[in-house]
Amino acid sequence: MRRRMRGSAVAGAAAAAVCALTVAVAVAVPPAGGTTGHPAVRPAARADAVAADCTDPEAGLRPQTVDGPAVQRIKDRGRLIAGVDQNSYRWGYRDPASRELNGFDIDLVHAIAKALLGDPDKVSFLAIPTNQRIPAVQKGKVDIIVRTMTISCDRIKQVAFSTAYFETGQQLLAPKGSPITAYDDSLRGKAVCAAKGSTAEGQLKKDSHGASVLTVPNQLDCLVRLQLGQVDAVLTDSALAAGQAAQDPSVRLVGKPFTTESYGVAMNLKDEDLVRRVNAVLEDYRRGGDGSPWMTAYRKWLAADLKGITAPPEPKYRD
């Protein structure tokens, strides 16, 4: 709400562009379950305006629970296909003992499946590598991606995001007792690890504070290198860093997150009805104060290593 009042003309144009795209599709493919009503005819804008004038990529579409073609497709199939990570502790990982997928992201997928299909277990989980998240959505290989995926201006051109379901930021992870205190000059002469192609790698390229940089295929590989003494610190987002700290009591998060990023559920740009439906699920997921499903999941998976969160992020809407 607050955000919408503040919305500038620029953001309005950006939103309009996205809407224009989704409307175009909605017109081409008539929804099976009646009218969606809400997004009426709006003036069309050039699509690239989204990127050029992107100021608030987190602002999403208002919740709606009427079945559109995408929701109907999932219902007809009887299963939700979700792209997840299987290697991020506390977020999406396969427990070697039970062989079950677990974590904050996985709980959210189950909640979406329950809302759509009435059964939290009617889900096929596909392990989607980081750089395959967008192609998997675009090619329709998965219905949703719930995989610690940051909402960004670049990405909203390629996929549609739900409202933010978690707020995080780049943060350093270092052994307890390390002279590294934050992402600052205490890094000089040290070796820092980052996952190849990650936001952290880009950040270190811009400013490494005199540290040497080692890149590895996966963020978890950084913890291996840290334990083996090949690097002095790991740069990743605080949510994933918390997952690493949870696996090694001798490392901790240092300093404050120095960027702000939000995770969103990614879907196909054409599946507007699904985006609205997921946003509705997220509304329910956040509702209930301290006893909300969101807070329950937070306490279950993250509170031990990512302290001090008292409420889920506020959703922002652009329409």
Binding site: Q86, N87, S88, Y89, Y93, R94, D95, P96, A97, N218, L220, D221, L223, V224, Q244, Q247, D248
Partner: peptide, 11 residues
């Protein structure tokens, strides 16, 4: 039960 094991094995 830590996924870190998989990362070690790959290394």
């Amino acid at each position: 039960g830590l996924p870190l094991g998989g990362a070690y094995l790959r290394y």
